[in-house]
């Protein structure tokens, strides 16, 4: 079936199967920042924004993105340099595998709850797993990003 949506501000048209997942479509278009990790909605490395909603693209039927504005970490890095700067300055990454998910989640939080308290920020970011940093520098990066807006 035909699918048209906007990806990082650019219109895209793709031919997708009815049960194809958004992560497959995005990676198929060469944007490999969005990863497939657990594949069951838990780890967050496949996070993208659909409109203002964060979604696990591993559990999001691509067909539902018809007409939507989809943003990946690559697009957000271009559109919101302050976000990437905050992660760089606070050293909010080590191996970098989880970083696209952390970045997308932070962008989602900024849209959903821009005045998030530290406790709310922690709870929101908790759904995006990191096996390296111990989280503190990630939380500091998201805090710095929210405060910079």
């Amino acid at each position: 079936m035909k699918l048209s949506f906007t990806l990082n501000g650019e219109p895209v048209a793709a031919d997708v199967a009815p049960d194809e997942l958004l992560v497959e479509v995005i990676r198929g278009l060469g944007l490999t920042g969005t990863k497939q990790g657990c594949g069951v909605g838990v780890c967050g490395v496949c996070s993208v924004l659909v409109g203002d909603r964060p979604v696990s693209s591993c559990l999001y039927l691509a067909a539902c993105a018809e007409g939507e504005q989809v943003w990946t970490a690559e697009g957000l890095a271009q559109a919101e340099p302050a976000l990437i700067r905050a992660f760089a300055e606070q050293e909010g990454m080590q191996c970098g595998i989880c970083t696209p998910g952390q970045v997308v989640t932070a962008a989602a939080l900024a849209r959903e709850n821009p005045a998030a308290t530290d406790a709310e920020l922690r709870q929101y970011q908790a759904g995006t797993l990191c096996r390296c940093t111990g989280y503190q520098t990630i939380l500091a990066a998201v805090r710095a990003y929210l405060d910079s807006r």
């Binding site: 049960d19 997942l21 069951v40 909605g41 559990l59 999001y60 039927l61 067909a63 539902c64």
Partner: peptide
């Protein structure tokens, strides 16, 4: 029916359901 699809996508992916038609309510 598909609401948010969070369970439907998971069940589809693991072959636990085999529908012929997905009716999305979004």
């Amino acid at each position: 029916a598909v609401g948010g699809g969070t369970s439907v996508a998971l069940l589809l992916k693991h072959g636990l359901i085999e529908p012929r038609r997905l009716v999305w309510l979004g």
